[in-house]
Nucleic acid binder design. Structure first.
Lengths: 145, 145
DNA sequence: ACACAAATCCCCACTTTTCCCCACAGACAA
DNA sequence: TTGTCTGTGGGGAAAAGTGGGGATTTGTGT
C-alpha cells in the first residue's frame, strides 16, 4: 500500500521523480511504471495504479447517467482531467500542464502515499491544508483511542 | 479508453489535429482514423468511434418512439447533426460549419477524452463550464473517498 | 459543355515536445 | 574507501504538432 510523505524536486524539464518506496509499495519484484494522474478533491493531483484506476472508472464513473448535468461535470473532472503517465527509465513523470495549473504546482512538491492512491501537492498549498495535532483530537475519540 | 485534456490549435484551414494519445486510446497498433461528430449535451461537440456510435444509435436512438414529438427532435439533434469525419494523413479533422457554430468554436479549442466519447469545446466556453475542486466535494463523499 | 471559383486533401517542411540515454552527486552499508 | 542504490541534470534523437504550397475534386454560373 502507498504510505508516507516525500518532497522530491522538479527539474528544469518539469520532471518529478517518484520515490522508489512508492514504486515498490505493491511488491518489491515489479516497480510501478505507469500512473494515472487526475484532478484531486482538494487543490491537489491524485494518482492511481492502472488496475485501480480502471476498476474505479468502470465501477464508479461509467455507470453514472450522462443525462444528469452534474454527472457530466463529474466525468469531465475525473476522466477529462486524467492522464496516463509512464515513468521514464529514471522513474520520473511529467505532469500535464492543466493539472499543474489546477494544483498550482511550482518549484516544491509534496507527495503523499494514501493506501491505494497518491496525492501530489504544491508544498505551499499542502502547508495550508495540512492537519495539525489539535484538530485531530476529536477524531482520536471517533477512532476509539 | 479515451481520457485527458488537450489544447490543440486550429490552423487557417480550420483543421484540428486529434492528439495521438486519443487516437491510440483503444490500442497502440491501430490508430483511429474516423470519428463521428455530433451535437453535445452542453455547448460542445461530441465525437465517437464508428463502432460506439453505431451501438449508441441502434441501442438508444432507434428504439425511441417517433410518435413522440420530443423524440423526433432528439433524433434530429443527434442524428441529423452528425457527420462522419475522416482524419487526414496528419491526423486532422475539419469540423462541419453547423457544429462549429453550435459550439462557438473559434481560435482555441479544448478536447476532452471521456471513456467512450470525446468532447470538443471552445476553450473560452469550457473555462466557464469547467468544474472546480470545491464543487466536487459532495461527489467525493458519494464515491467513498 | 466549359470556365471559374471554392473546397478538399496529399505532401513536404519546420517547430516544439517528449523521452531515451548517459553522467554525476549524495546517502548509506559493507 | 569502495560498492550500490537513489535522486538529479542535461544532450540529443525521435515523435508529435503546426503551417502552407499545390494538385485534384466539387460545385456554380454562363
Amino acid at each position: 500500500m502507498f504510505m508516507g510523505e516525500y518532497r522530491p524536486s522538479i527539474d528544469e524539464k518539469g520532471r518529478i521523480a517518484i520515490p522508489v518506496r512508492l514504486r515498490k509499495a505493491f511488491g518489491e519484484e515489479r516497480l510501478i511504471d505507469t500512473l494515472i494522474l487526475t484532478h484531486g478533491f482538494d487543490k491537489c493531483i491524485m494518482a492511481f495504479r492502472e488496475a485501480d484506476w480502471r476498476e474505479f472508472v468502470e465501477g464508479k464513473l461509467v455507470p453514472l447517467s450522462q443525462a444528469d448535468p452534474r454527472n457530466r461535470m463529474r466525468l469531465r473532472f475525473l476522466m477529462g482531467g486524467a492522464a496516463e503517465c509512464e515513468l521514464d527509465k529514471q522513474g520520473r513523470i511529467i505532469i500535464p500542464q492543466h493539472l499543474k495549473e489546477y494544483a498550482e504546482i511550482g518549484e516544491d512538491v509534496t507527495i503523499l502515499g494514501l493506501y491505494n492512491r497518491i496525492e501530489i501537492w504544491a508544498s505551499a498549498m499542502y502547508a495550508r491544508y495540512r492537519p495539525d495535532g489539535e484538530s485531530m483530537n476529536a477524531f482520536a475519540g471517533e477512532l476509539g483511542f
